[in-house]
Design a protein around this nucleic acid. Structure first.
Lengths: 186, 186
DNA sequence: GTCTATACTTCGATAGAC
DNA sequence: GTCTATCGAAGTATAGAC
C-alpha cells in the first residue's frame, strides 16, 4: 500500500477529479485513470485498495478544500454573497452531483457526504445568523438554518441547471437573489 | 429491432428503472438488467440498439408521466402544495439525480433533460402566476418563473438530502415552507 | 418478429518481481 | 516502498438461428 504523501498518489487523485468532472464517475476506472496520469493501471490499486477507497479519498480532499474556503467566507466583507458564489460555482456543482450519484448506492461515500453536508450547513447557518442579526432580520420567522438550506440548495440547483443548459426563470431568479442578498447584507 | 409495443420491452424498462433507483445508473448493464427481468442479456440490444438508447427511452417514459401529473396539479384544490409534493417526492428525486449525473457526460440524455426541464418549469410558472395573482402577491417583485425555480430546486434538494441522510435545517425549512405556502395559497 | 451463440473489449484486483 | 504480469469476471454489441 503506497504512502499517503506520495507524489504519484496525488497525481492519481488529480486525474480522477478531472475524469469525474468531464466524463462522470463511471469513467473513473483504473485503466482510464492510469492512462490520463501516464501510469500503469495496477498502480491505482497500489495506492487505493479498491476504487471505492479512491472515491472516498478524493471526496475528503475536496471536502477539506471547501471547508477552508468556507472559513474565508467568514472573514469576507460580503459573507452572504460569498456564500452564494461558493455554492453556485459551476465546476464545483458538476463534481458534487457526481459524488451524490455515487452516494446513492455506495454506503462509504454516502456517510462521508452526510457528515460533510451537516458540518457545512451548520457553518453556513452560523455565518448567516450573524449577518441577519446585524441587519435586524427576524431570526425566529426566518431561522438561519432554514435560510442557509434554501440559499445553498438554490445556488447549487441553479449551477446544475446551467451545466445542463436549462435556463427557464434564471434571469429573474438571479435578479431576485441579488436583491434579497442586498437587503439582508446591506 | 423489437417492436415498441412489446411486453418484453416494457419489462426491460421497468427493470432498468428499478436498478437505476436502487443501484445507480452504472448498475444498468445489459447483464444485470437481463438477470433482473429473467431474460438473456442480448435481448437488451434487440430492443435498444445501445445502452444510451435505453436511457433515453426510459427518461422519456418518466418525463411523460411527470407532465401528466403536473396537469393534474392544475386542477388540484391546493396547487402550490401539490407542486411542492410533486418535486419533493423522495423516490422521484433519487431517480432524477441519476439522470442528471448521466446527462453530465452523455449529450443525448442532456438534451432530453434540458427540453423536459424547460417545459416543466414553464408550466410550473403558469400555475404559480395564477395562484399568486389570486392571493394578491406582487408578481413584479416576485416573478413567478423565479419563484417556480426556487420552489422546485428547494423541494428537489431537500428530497435529495433526505435520501443522503442529511437533515441540518430540514425541520425549520419544512415549517417555513408550510407557512409560506399557506400565505401564498390561503 | 423474437431471441441466442459468440466475439472481443474493458473491468477490478492480486500475486509476485524489483 | 514501488511497480508489473496476469487472471477471471463483466461489459457492449453483432451476426445469425428460429
Amino acid at each position: 500500500m503506497g504512502a499517503k504523501t506520495s507524489k504519484t498518489r496525488s497525481m492519481l487523485l488529480d486525474a480522477a477529479e478531472e475524469l469525474m468532472r468531464e466524463n462522470g464517475y463511471a469513467a473513473v476506472t483504473s485503466r482510464k485513470l492510469a492512462a490520463k496520469a501516464g501510469l500503469k493501471p495496477q498502480l491505482v490499486h497500489y495506492y487505493f485498495r479498491t476504487m471505492d477507497d479512491l472515491f472516498v479519498a478524493l471526496f475528503q480532499r475536496v471536502g477539506e478544500f471547501l471547508l477552508r474556503r468556507q472559513e474565508q467566507v467568514l472573514q469576507s466583507e460580503h459573507p452572504l454573497r460569498a456564500i452564494w458564489e461558493l455554492s453556485n460555482n459551476p465546476t464545483g456543482v458538476v463534481l458534487s452531483y457526481e459524488f451524490v450519484a455515487l452516494a446513492n448506492h455506495r454506503k462509504a461515500i454516502r456517510s462521508e457526504i452526510a457528515e460533510f453536508g451537516e458540518r457545512f450547513r451548520k457553518n453556513q447557518a452560523k455565518i448567516l445568523r450573524t449577518a441577519m442579526e446585524r441587519s435586524g432580520i427576524d431570526t425566529k420567522a426566518w431561522p438561519p438554518s432554514a435560510v442557509a438550506a434554501i440559499l445553498e440548495l438554490v445556488a447549487r440547483g441553479l449551477g446544475l441547471e446551467d451545466a445542463l443548459e436549462i435556463s427557464g426563470g434564471h434571469r429573474e431568479l438571479r435578479k431576485l437573489v441579488d436583491r434579497l442578498i442586498e437587503e439582508l447584507g446591506g
